[in-house]
Design a protein around this nucleic acid. Sequence first.
DNA 1: CTGAAAGCGCTAACAT
DNA 2: ATGTTAGCGCTTTCAG
Lengths: 342, 342
Amino acid sequence: MASRTPAGPVTMEDVAREAGVSRAAVSKVIRDAHGVSAAMRERVTTAIATLGYRPNVSARGMRGATYTLGIEIPELANPFFPRLLAGVTAAVSASPYQLIVAPADPANVEGYRAIQALVDRQVDGVIAVSPLVEPAWLEALAATVPVVMLGRHDRASGYDTVANDDEAGTRQAMRHLIDLGHRDIAHLTCEETKTVPGSGVPQAIRLETYREVMRESGLDAHIRVVRTPTGEAGACRTATRLLTGPERPTAIFASHDEPALGVQRAIAEAGLTPMDVSVVGYDDIEIARHPGVSLTTVNQDGERIGRLAAELLLERIAGRTEPRQEIVRPELVVRSSTRPPP
Amino acid sequence: MASRTPAGPVTMEDVAREAGVSRAAVSKVIRDAHGVSAAMRERVTTAIATLGYRPNVSARGMRGATYTLGIEIPELANPFFPRLLAGVTAAVSASPYQLIVAPADPANVEGYRAIQALVDRQVDGVIAVSPLVEPAWLEALAATVPVVMLGRHDRASGYDTVANDDEAGTRQAMRHLIDLGHRDIAHLTCEETKTVPGSGVPQAIRLETYREVMRESGLDAHIRVVRTPTGEAGACRTATRLLTGPERPTAIFASHDEPALGVQRAIAEAGLTPMDVSVVGYDDIEIARHPGVSLTTVNQDGERIGRLAAELLLERIAGRTEPRQEIVRPELVVRSSTRPPP
DNA sequence: CTGAAAGCGCTAACAT
DNA sequence: ATGTTAGCGCTTTCAG
């Protein structure tokens, strides 16, 4: 099968010669620009197939589009992100665009480097999950290339955003715990640099909302915010300290599912059970429904968010300029990791 | 910070003018080719910084390298693959290369499209996890660009491979079950198209080895191979049929962890426990050690495999031509999902 | 050690 | 509807 043969050094020139037409004609056919007769399209298509021609994306990138969309993702190890990606992939697969992913390397979590790498490669559009990059930088970037940011709550003028309603989700989770009768509810979240108040970062909003709900419920005295490094293992260690220390909380609301899993492990390793300490997460990653995990959590429909982001990006590429901000409604999923306090 | 400003249309020409040198000089400095005086390097570097110059990768790609490495991955939803990626990322981060990921879209699992997309983009090297592409195609590809294949056991001449010893791993798993006293051991694996005997695909080797061990142990009559579509949910449905049907096996060896999680769920939903049916997986994904999952499985060190692959690729790019095939030794991790038969 | 000049493969005017 | 031509920004001989 010719189309399965890896590209040799076949150029558009070769195709033109084979088909007995000009390079411009070939160019028009492959971009299906209009102004080509059916006959010509036919001949060119045939020539492309017999020669196994593949357009050189670098060359295209120098004049027009690369037909490449880039997505920057901070940690693929957190299963929530692959879900986002699945949504984007699905939405893009029908388009003529190819998606490439730039993983932010751990040394540069903010994502500047990865996003820049994408732009350096002349992608036609960028989706990014970088809660920590500065809005001003993004505006400047968006002036260059269409941009959609995920999980951001800032009111941008040059780029689009898709986020879930972190306040509503957090309220549902906290309401659930309080309704069960919990009062000693701790919040496990990431380092302070990632939860700057007013930054619009999801974790920051969840934290603020946690505090608000506690206050509204007259539980000011029970507010307890615990910081932990990224990852399940770190969360487990931190939770172990919390659980074995004085005044063990009866419930822990984790900023997202990954650390929640670590908390569950800490609970088990401390010889405790969900009857002793309840846990709530955020995201509803697939494993949360596993019978041995059974984590109560807030579902954000990652695939939907990803799909939406891709659609917005495609719209932008097609020419839209008014910014759009989509907010997706999250939904609490109650499982057995939450019980009434002992 | 200048380097944090998104690239404007600053070209090498601009840098050359700013520094008062020729374009060629700038080119040499950014590639740090030799033949540049310290003074010149200094001036050029300064000019680059003040102008916020970013090399245009497309333009570079037309003559020389793109400093981009591509990795093709079939399903990011399976947590094993992000581990591979972490290894690759780590190994590459110190190099001048940028890594981009091309997710194989579900409609083209074999990965031809994604790999081709990478090559079309003039990457300087390719790592791929495509058990199903044909060796001949890969050889042709490898003649064009350095290639390292993951999980493949074929004896290639033009590209490198890194794989774990699937036979050894499977033998450890099966030995464990048999030593526990199991005789009715079923094997849950993927569709037949993915387990063609002699194909060298990991799943095929695990299947063959399962059969061998059963025969060697005089359990020919108990050989039972069950096919299931990709994903946890499908595995759960399939396992439910197996568990509720006649002659329930006392143990299930799943081709990898993802379906094993589905089996565990099926067991729980059928009102059974690990005391009734044992489960073994393959991969040792992070969640396997969660107390509620506690899956006995075969550890393949994904990060190590990824790191190795990246190192081999870098060697190839540096000029090595003799093929290398690395086999990584797997190791059984016993947890509580396996018990003696009832 | 440095600069001038020739393309790489393609697209986008502009002709025809 | 089709062909001609001028670059895009860079690397790479080849001179100086």
